[in-house]
């Protein structure tokens, strides 16, 4: 069933409201959109709206964490990771506080609101901060589990969530493991390493490539930091060709993170499907993803190209 990862976040928060009395939730006047309103329905006394003030959103969360609470602070990724960057850096991550930043409406799939609201740099910003854990779930099930796991983990976490509904990648048996990449399809000709909503496109690409006799491995990297180096190096050794896919700028995102791992340990050919160092624009999410090359077709094209280069 198609579900937006932000919907799953709201459902996870509802569970946490009942299960864990230390959880508090903060929002900056977007609770209906970020789905923190779900938590408010169950536990209004532990929900704090700070108004349209994202710096204070993060700073207040830091204070709550210092007094023993487990705060989840939410806004759109543009304002959480962008506007409040320095507060996250200095007041949350530098002292290693137990603050969870769940940022919704990441990437181009925000759609009609346009380039000013489409965070395509947030993975890059967040993973550059020491102490920060960065999670980018692929579907609703993974998002829900990631949120529950983040609540147990002690330390700062950034969770990247989307506005648009995404198809299920996993069934009910899926168990999320923080920091562990997931091998979704095995293959020897190339490896497609994807995150977020591009995981479903990678799976489609796998099927399309199979019809042409190409055997592509598919890996989901939901935890971008700390990244699963082993699964990446293994894929590099066994396929010698990697294609990364992300709904994020190719500057500093998953593609860059994978490149860093490879160049440290086992350099192989690599191509990056993602937003090619440009801003987004208004449009229907599907139309934008197509225009900016965030599709299974583009993954197929680049995979075939890299195999030729081997």
């Amino acid at each position: 069933m198609a579900k937006a990862t932000r919907e799953a976040y709201g459902e996870a928060l509802k569970r946490l409201a009942v299960d864990n009395p230390d959880i508090v939730v903060l929002d900056a006047d977007l609770s209906g959109s970020t789905k923190t309103s779900e938590f408010k329905k169950v536990s209004p006394e532990r929900f704090f709206n700070v108004g349209i003030a994202e710096q204070n959103l993060i700073g207040t969360a830091a204070g709550l964490a210092l007094a023993g609470k487990i705060p989840f602070a939410s806004s759109f990724a543009m304002f959480a990771a962008g506007r409040a960057f320095e507060i996250i850096r200095n007041t949350v991550a530098y002292p290693g506080l137990n603050v969870k930043i769940a940022a919704t409406h990441a990437g181009l799939s925000v759609g009609e609101d346009g380039g000013s609201h489409q965070a395509i740099e947030d993975i890059s910003l967040m993973r550059s901060i020491p102490n920060m854990t960065v999670i980018s779930p692929a579907d609703g099930r993974e998002a829900e589990q990631a949120v529950l796991r983040a609540a147990e983990y002690v330390g700062p976490v950034y969770i990247r969530l989307g506005r648009m509904a995404v198809e299920d990648v996993y069934d009910d048996s899926y168990v999320f493991e923080l920091g562990k990449g997931v091998l979704l399809r095995d293959g020897k000709d190339a490896a497609i390493i994807a995150t977020g909503l591009m995981v479903q496109e990678a799976l489609k690409a796998h099927d399309m490539l199979k019809e042409e006799g190409i055997d592509a491995r598919v890996i989901n990297i939901h935890t971008i930091k700390p990244i699963d180096r082993d699964i990446i190096i293994k894929a590099a050794k066994e396929t010698k060709a990697i294609v990364t896919a992300e709904e994020h700028s190719v500057v500093g995102g998953l593609g860059s993170a994978v490149l860093e791992v490879l160049s440290d340990q086992y350099p192989v050919l690599l191509k990056r499907v993602g937003i090619q160092d440009t801003f987004g624009e208004s449009g229907k999410p599907k139309d934008l993803l197509k225009k900016y090359g965030l599709t299974a077709e583009e993954i197929v094209r680049q995979t075939k190209e890299i195999i030729k280069m081997k």
Binding site: T60, A62, G63, L64, A65, N90, T91, Y94
Partner: peptide, 24 residues
């Protein structure tokens, strides 16, 4: 030392968060 500070403007928000927790 109750909070890491130095980048100006952030301490009052931190204090708010602590005060909210104690009220709660």
């Amino acid at each position: 030392v109750e909070a890491s500070t130095g980048s100006l403007g952030q301490g009052l928000s931190i204090a708010n968060g602590m005060a909210l927790a104690f009220k709660l």
